[in-house]
Design a protein around this nucleic acid. Structure first.
Lengths: 101, 101
DNA sequence: TGCTCATATGAATAACGGTTCATATGAATG
DNA sequence: CATTCATATGAACCGTTATTCATATGAGCA
């Protein structure tokens, strides 16, 4: 059978989920975090955005459970919370890399 | 090695791609098409949108190579063009179905 | 070849989302 | 316990985008 987990799904929830991945800045943050955990300052440096903008985006990623926070002394360390993310991004890259036959 | 196809990627292109999936209407269209090909009228009936709105969204899906068109007599029949789509949606559902531990 | 029906397209409007700027919060350390 | 430093939050602004309405297109069929 082709339709495995497709039976029950919430279009709104799924749209919200993809919307979160549909932003350059958030994708760059995720990509940086895939290489290892980072604090907010370092993230904002790497993606070249202000501290505020970065924090706003991290809040969105946090709410979607895509990143996870832990405190390390005075700073907050962000990390990827879910391995599905890597798979999703892999699959998107595969799709984008394809020719139109 | 964890990072398979991650080395080279275009954040803009990927964001654009996810943006397309980040819309309730387009997701519903894709879901309907996963069960089989349909003409525009039938699609608009099933998703409960006007013919015009549906056509606009189909154009976007077409440009992203997520759907494919063929003519059948007087009508245009739309179909999923790529099996990656099903996998992507599956994975999103998996992520959404998880508890926050 | 001209009509018709399915679909596409354009302009306009309204809603949404990301960044900035200014400021609040609150844990850690002295 | 007060101060400081990292991070979060709120409001405002502006660009983007989905829908509607009106109309254009163009393939198929008489």
């Amino acid at each position: 059978m082709k339709h495995t987990v497709m039976e029950r799904w919430d279009p709104d929830a799924m749209a919200d989920f993809f919307k979160i991945l549909g932003d350059k800045t958030r994708l760059r943050i995720l990509m940086e975090l895939l290489s290892g955990s980072l604090c907010v300052m370092h993230i904002s440096e790497r993606v070249g955005m202000s501290q505020s903008a970065t924090s706003h985006q991290l809040a969105i990623l946090r709410r979607a459970d895509l990143v996870r926070v832990t405190r390390k002394g005075k700073t907050l360390v962000y990390a990827i919370s879910d391995e599905h993310v890597r798979l999703l991004l892999d699959m998107a890259i595969l799709h984008l890399g394809e020719e139109k036959e």
